[in-house]
Nucleic acid binder design. Structure first.
Length: 511
RNA sequence: GCGGGCAUAGUGUAGUCUGGUUAUCACAUAGGCUUGCCAAGCCUAUAACCCGGGUUCAAAUCCCGGUGCCCGCACCA
């Protein structure tokens, strides 16, 4: 997919708004920062993207299951997960260099026991008493800290005494579901728990429309496994080239990925299971979402960059021209047994399992996470081209908001037969649209812009054929603009096959 | 959150500096005529000064506040 000129972010957003893909929430009131609404085309695209993701990743193993958990978490959960603690650490802001610090970092020497339980005013007093200096620039111009929590918290229940939070990530829901799913999944490892849903963060500065939002949709797969025995069929993917950018090459200033065989990554120390899933994520981006192969890279995070509980982390990045470079669209986190251990401690319930050989184990977790909204933008960025006054959105048929449009060449003369074709598509479960307004070229153009892969034009030849089974209409393909006369049966067959998203060959994963 | 820039029909814009007729143009949308397989043409119509306050005889225009957007920094457990 190439484009004559990069589409600007504003220009892309204008097209998306105009075509009813998405717009700011409450925009008649001036908008609400960090929130967007999806219109008909966007909602369909997003839904198709989610289904394609589920088909692909649930297709990796029959032991991967999708759940749909609640979006509200009781306080005890976010306390155990560490979100409450980490988010409520008071902040100190340096007025001189604008650096932000945790209050306890600045007051380390003066108050080694930490600042828990102190009010912002008390911390402010301490800063003055101790003549605290900015750890970054040494200035004494430290602003009075103000508590800030990235979670949306609220009173829960009629008494108002309980607190609850909108989940800041969907992963927690899957960890909480593990104990139930262990039984539902017939007590086998690996066990995959997938969920697609919204997560909420009260971001300080939402930016770039779908990239830093206050309510966003994540598609996540948590794979629970036994680190000693998890053996995916690695040889089947060993030769696949992965566009990785490893920490050592990053330190040397490299930005371009280095295509590396999967087996070389394993020889270099990465676990087979991790690389196996890296391959599946790569295939999903390249073959299912069809990002240009040279626009994908796996960006390894260093010890300092990743959260302490992540043992290995590669961000799945795609070059998004409208936003000026590579953007994180997903990631693979090897989280060890951190999450289940935390929730064991927090809930008082042992979330470890006893395996067939009698061993007791807290399963490890490989988290595969995708930002659904970000991918909607990236698909628009990668697929939309504006050239010679023609705007085309090259989306795979199974992602396109509308797979097919039925167009009567002349509304009055061909409308009835066109309606019949559209009804036949509808009866086959394919949501076809029709359009009889304006010239045929204009209608093709409208469909190109929203990514409809096929247009079917009913003409006098179609109408003249007495036997409906033998009647043909023009089937026009979006990208090539090639036309071909097809019968209704042929059309149904092609469209039906086209709208099914690819899935990997299912394999039994052991361990 | 800090600094800078910006906000006019569905979309992109002219007008703002220097306050003053019915707010410009294009595309899009809707109707009519015409055409009939890749955004044709002509006619017509719908449609906007982000919100609130102030200055003034008079505010899209000047001032203040709010909201939103863009860029940089910071943040993104």
């Amino acid at each position: 997919m190439s484009r004559s000129a990069a589409v600007e972010s504003d220009q892309l957003y204008a097209i998306l708004r105009r075509r009813g893909v998405l717009w700011p929430t409450a925009d008649v009131y001036g908008g609400a920062q960090g929130l967007v609404d999806y219109g008909p085309a966007g909602a369909a695209l997003k839904r198709h993207l989610e289904e394609a993701w589920a088909a692909w990743f649930l297709g990796v193993s029959p032991d991967f299951h999708r759940i749909d958990p609640a979006e509200i978490l009781p306080e005890a959960v976010v306390r155990a997960s560490g979100h409450l603690e980490n988010f409520t650490d008071p902040e100190v802001v340096c007025d001189h260099c604008h650096a932000h610090f945790r209050a306890e970092t600045v007051l380390e020497k003066a108050r080694p026991e930490g600042v828990d339980g102190l009010s912002p005013a008390q911390i402010g007093e301490l800063l003055t008493q101790q003549s605290a200096r900015c750890p970054s620039c040494g200035s004494k111009e430290l602003a009075i800290p103000r508590p800030f929590n990235l979670m949306f918290g609220f009173d829960f229940g009629a008494t108002g005494r309980e607190r609850a939070y909108l989940r800041p990530e969907t992963a927690q829901s899957s960890y909480l579901a593990f104990a139930r799913m262990w039984d539902v999944g017939r007590r086998r490892l690996p066990l995959g728990i997938a969920t697609i849903g919204r997560a909420y963060r009260n971001e300080i500065a939402p930016r770039q429309v779908l990239f830093r939002m206050r309510a966003f949709t994540q598609a996540e797969l948590q794979v629970f496994f036994d680190p000693e025995h998890f053996r995916p069929p690695f040889p089947t993917v060993a030769d696949e080239l992965l566009p990785v950018l490893r920490v050592d090459r990053r330190r040397a200033g490299a930005e371009a990925p280095d295509p590396t065989p999967a087996r070389a990554l394993v020889a270099d120390g990465l676990p087979e299971f991790y690389v196996y899933f890296l391959v599946h994520v790569h295939r999903f981006l390249r073959d299912v979402l069809r990002y240009p192969a040279d626009a994908i890279r796996f960006f390894e995070k260093s010890d300092a960059e990743r959260a302490f509980y992540n043992r290995i982390q590669f961000d799945a990045e795609v070059r998004v021209e409208s936003l000026g470079g590579f953007k994180e669209l997903g990631a693979l986190h090897y989280r060890g047994d951190y999450d289940l251990s935390r929730h064991s401690a927090g809930s008082g319930r042992d979330l470890g399992v006893t395996l067939g050989d009698g061993r007791h184990l807290v399963p490890h977790v490989l988290e595969i996470t995708f930002g659904v909204d970000r991918n909607v933008w990236a698909l628009a960025d990668a697929g939309l081209s504006i050239a010679d006054g023609r705007t085309v959105w090259r989306l795979p048929p199974y992602l396109a908001p509308t797979p097919v449009a039925v167009l009567p060449l002349i509304a009055e003369e061909h409308g009835r037969v066109a309606d019949a074709w559209r009804a036949a598509l509808g009866a086959a479960g394919i949501p076809a649209v029709s359009d009889d307004r304006g010239s045929i070229g204009r209608r093709y153009a409208r469909m190109d812009e929203v990514g409809t892969p096929w247009c079917v034009t009913v003409d006098s030849e179609t109408v003249a054929e007495a036997d409906p089974a033998r009647a043909t209409a023009t089937m026009r393909e979006r990208d090539s603009r090639a036309q071909e006369r097809v019968t209704l049966d042929t059309l149904l067959d092609r469209v039906r096959r086209g709208v099914v998203p690819p899935r990997p060959a299912a394999v039994e994963l052991s361990g």
